[in-house]
Design a protein around this nucleic acid. Structure first.
Lengths: 163, 163
DNA sequence: TTATTCGCTTGCAAATTGCAAGTTAGATTG
DNA sequence: CAATCTAACTTGCAATTTGCAAGCGAATAA
């Protein structure tokens, strides 16, 4: 029982790979950031912030740090502008491509989204090609989006307390 | 702007399939429950509760309800014992098998887990067969685990506040 | 030098999770 | 039949995390 000099708490968990994976990114924001890096070609804080998902800056900052600590991304200041930080997926991070692709396909098939059906079906039929292309763009540092950004239709879903 | 008679709040989100998927199960507990149904053959509240992940009963209950509301699982009282509720993945739920499999493989490859490497490599090489088997067991209501339960090694990772 | 931009950080409120005890209904036991 | 046990939650409250919006400090532009 090591007594560590950090704020800590008793943690109980299994060593199942799914469980371990979910400890790394078992929250919605982390995988959305990975998506933005992998699929949309985003690199910078401001881009993630404006991704259309409504992430708060403190959460974004926290998640970027966690992803970096987990070895999924790296952060590097731009040489021409020291204020700018460019984030990039690591090999470990790009290895999440199949997870992201399956999430994408599941969502497109089972929920209402703005993704064109034909595009999704094509991706489902050509998983290997898609994954290879994602990896090529990552290797070549090509920021071209794999898919466009599917905006919300501008209508906000509002809910209100009864009464 | 529909005014609903429920507790609600302004929600802003994109219509990207990944984002939508993560709204359904972008928390660690939901996917762990799906794993237990899909991989371990669990059906009952008590089984999930005792899965070794340390889920609190209120969270378990809440997540089961949400998964049911999302159409991912169904809940049915047992005929021989009306206290018992059997949960089962729907077609929509079993369609998450590729997501779970990729999570499993990513975890096994990139993190320290208790999964035997040979088993994981074999699964990675035979994704289609694995997915077919998972679906067959689901269709036949065969609760045989696809994989054993990877226990924590009995040692609890404890942390304590400084001082 | 002032103004703008970038990537955070901060203070506080709201929401969610976690803990452990409690409740209710169904089943079993004696 | 009453007492006891079991299954699936529910509850009250504390701890933690998320969300909002303003603020900060460093780098760059004008």
């Amino acid at each position: 029982m090591a007594c560590v000099t950090e704020k800590t708490k008793l943690v109980r968990r299994s060593l199942c790979p799914v469980s371990i994976s979910l400890e790394v990114f078992g929250d919605r924001w982390s995988l959305l950031i990975v998506r933005d890096l992998m699929v949309r070609g985003y690199r910078r804080f401001k881009e993630f912030q404006e991704s259309g998902e409504g992430i708060a800056t403190n959460i974004l900052s926290d998640r970027l740090q966690r992803l970096e600590a987990s070895g999924i991304i790296t952060a590097e200041a731009e040489e021409t502008d020291g204020r700018r930080v460019n984030y990039r997926l690591t090999e470990k991070g790009i290895d999440l491509a199949p997870v992201l692709l399956e999430l994408l396909l599941w969502g497109a098939r089972n929920e209402k989204t703005a993704a064109p059906c034909a595009v999704m079906e094509n991706m489902a039929k050509n998983r290997d090609e898609v994954l290879a292309e994602v990896r090529r763009r990552w290797r070549d540092r090509d920021p071209t989006p794999v898919l466009p950004k599917f905006e919300s239709d501008g209508r906000m879903e509002t809910k209100r307390r009864a009464g």
